[in-house]
Computed example of a mutant assay.
Amino acid sequence: MVGGNVGTWKAQDRVYEADLLNGIESWVFASNGTYCNELDITPRMIADFDIVIMNLNAIGSSKRLQQVRALAENRPKHVIWMTLLEGDMRTYLKPMPHLRELFDASSFVNCININAEHFIQSLTQSPVFTLGIPYPVDGVRACAISREHRSRSVHICPFLKTRWNEYQVATQLHIPIIGYERRLTRKFRNLLSNMRDCGSFFNVDINRTYISKLLHSADLTVEYAKPFKEYYAHASSSLLWLNLDDRYTWGRYVLDAAALGVPIISTISTGHAPKLFPELTVQNPFDIDTAVQMAHRIMEDDRFAKNACDYAFEHIQEFKPDMMMKKLYTIIDTL
């Protein structure tokens, strides 16, 4: 597994993370494999493995894309190369040098959002599948707060500075609203991005202060981002979640809600919402009226909310690590 995070490590070195980690590194634990930063990968390392998963979201320049293309084109014949498209699939609407050639050099392309699959396939002769990323269903489920112990509150999934359509829905429910923001870190490597993105080098509270003034509802509580285990427990204590996403990503919030047994109102663009929560999926991120109607039904109809969650939990099982490995081997058998 080749990605943008620093370091090289094996699955057995970090087994303590396997139950909750839901990023691309989940492939490392599912396959009992090795993780490597994309800048450290070499032809010699590639030759030592049967399968290489290259996360294209980590490649930040056309020069580096050309280098990765060369690695794919010149790899030994025994190596299966999966190019993993993580992030927002709208990125690939913009023409990029070396992209199509890298796709063609891949054994197959893993497009993480079903809505983009046919478009990506039009760019390459290599097969394209919406395989995605393994999800630690059982580990996340163990963090869930049972429905009878949940508060009558609504949880806004994205950071509050990201967009405010969820907030516009939440304020019409007249119940407590729980949202999150990032606390700035004062590490040296983050100082320039702190100033660029937030307007301060050192004010760790600037995001929360800014959003609290902008979204001045008395019902809103702004929390700081939390570690996985604490976040899952805290977020699952709300009666419902809102995620009116405008992106075409892997839609992890929908997976989180399904695993935790919390109803989530989300959009078609997530890819997962129509499959896991079909009765709670709106057509687009602007359809707040429909979202408000759905939210009221969740709050007023326990049977409806429970059925929606039971359906989602039944259908999220296909994303468990062992099931995803079976899907991967099935794809490889077709190559």
Rank of each mutant, 00 (worst) to 15 (best):
I156E: 05
R152C: 12
S126A: 06
H149W: 10
G132T: 12
R150S: 05
S126R: 07
E166W: 02
Y167Q: 02
R163S: 05
L131Y: 06
I145R: 07
A170V: 00
A142F: 09
G139L: 07
S153T: 00
S151R: 12
R163D: 04
P134S: 10
A142K: 13
R152W: 13
W164A: 15
C143G: 05
P127Y: 06
Y167C: 00
S146Q: 08
Y135C: 14
R152Y: 13
F159P: 12
H155F: 13
A144E: 03
S146P: 09
P127E: 02
V140H: 01
Q125K: 07
P158S: 03
E148K: 15
K161E: 14
C157W: 02
C143M: 12
C143D: 04
L160I: 01
G139Y: 04
S126D: 06
V128H: 01
H155C: 12
Y167S: 01
C143P: 00
Q125N: 11
V169Q: 01
H149Q: 10
E148I: 09
I156C: 01
V137C: 10
V137F: 08
G132C: 02
R150L: 13
P158K: 11
R141G: 00
F129L: 08
S146H: 08
P158A: 02
E166H: 14
V128G: 04
E148R: 14
S126P: 03
I156W: 03
R150G: 07
P134M: 12
I145G: 06
K161A: 10
I133H: 05
V169I: 08
H149D: 12
I156D: 04
C157Q: 03
P158F: 00
D138M: 06
S153D: 13
R141K: 15
C143S: 08
S151K: 12
Y167R: 01
P136M: 07
H155G: 08
V154G: 03
N165F: 11
P134H: 04
V154P: 01
S146D: 07
F129I: 09
I156H: 04
R152M: 12
R152T: 13
R163E: 06
R152G: 07
E148H: 13
V154N: 08
S126V: 00
H155Y: 15
A142E: 15
S151P: 12
H149Y: 10
Q168K: 07
R163W: 10
R150N: 06
V137W: 06
T162Q: 15
V140K: 04
P134C: 10
I145Y: 06
S153Q: 13
L160E: 04
R163H: 06
V128Q: 02
Q125M: 12
Q168M: 09
I156A: 00
F159W: 11
Q168E: 03
F159H: 14
P136H: 06
P134W: 01
R150K: 08
I145A: 07
V154C: 05
A170T: 00
W164L: 15
F159C: 13
